[in-house]
């Protein structure tokens, strides 16, 4: 079967034989593996390598660090995964390029915010600390808002929403 897959890739199969090979691709994991392996070999031989070694692994790691904001994770079908990752990697690279292009095309953008804003964009958004109210209350005593509006400003710091207030 592997030879037939290889022949199919090279366009050397008759129509009827090609039909059988495509069928195998549809239904047999082994055939699909061969298809991918041969493409990888072909790419390597033609020196059309697009991504550095370990790129997929690094992307996986980075994705793992990202908070899940999309739909629930799909079933981990290992044989599909590599391709999904490569396509994800390509999208990441594409978006990164778009963002970069955005910056470089905007000469009006002030230098300082450019340097600062990505820092906050890359920062992990976390839930407020358990003891958020303690910090807020300790802070409020020195807030200039007290002299502007008196104790009303304190309601901001004893929120029932901030976690830990019911300890």
């Amino acid at each position: 079967m592997n030879e037939r897959i290889s022949a199919l890739m090279d366009g050397e199969l008759e129509r009827r034989e090609a039909g059988g090979a495509l069928d195998a691709l549809k239904h047999e994991g082994g055939a699909r593996d061969a298809w991918r392996r041969y493409h990888l070999i072909g790419d390597a031989m033609r020196d059309t390598r697009l991504l550095s070694a370990g790129f997929a692994a690094r992307v996986t790691m980075k994705l793992g660090d990202e908070p899940t904001v999309l739909a629930p994770r799909a079933k981990p079908l290992l044989e599909q995964r590599r391709w999904q990752l490569l396509s994800a990697a390509a999208s990441v690279a594409a978006v990164a390029f778009v963002s970069f292009a955005y910056f470089s095309q905007d000469p009006a953008a002030p230098a300082v915010p450019v340097a600062q804003t990505p820092a906050s964009a890359e920062t992990a958004q976390v839930a407020p600390p358990e003891t958020a109210n303690d910090y807020l209350l300790a802070h409020q005593g020195y807030s200039p808002r007290n002299s502007l509006q008196g104790m009303a400003a304190y309601v901001r710091t004893v929120s029932s929403d901030a976690r830990g207030s019911r300890r």
């Binding site: 958004q125 976390v126 839930a127 407020p128 600390p129 802070h139 200039p144 808002r145 901030a162």
Partner: peptide, 27 residues
């Protein structure tokens, strides 16, 4: 004069909860 920022520094030892580095927002 209008806004204030407090910097709190506390020893890691004796903390009952795990530290989650990062940013959170409350209004």
């Amino acid at each position: 004069g209008m806004a204030a920022v407090s910097v709190f520094i506390e020893p890691m030892a004796g903390r009952s909860e795990a530290v989650r580095p990062g940013l959170s927002s409350l209004g």
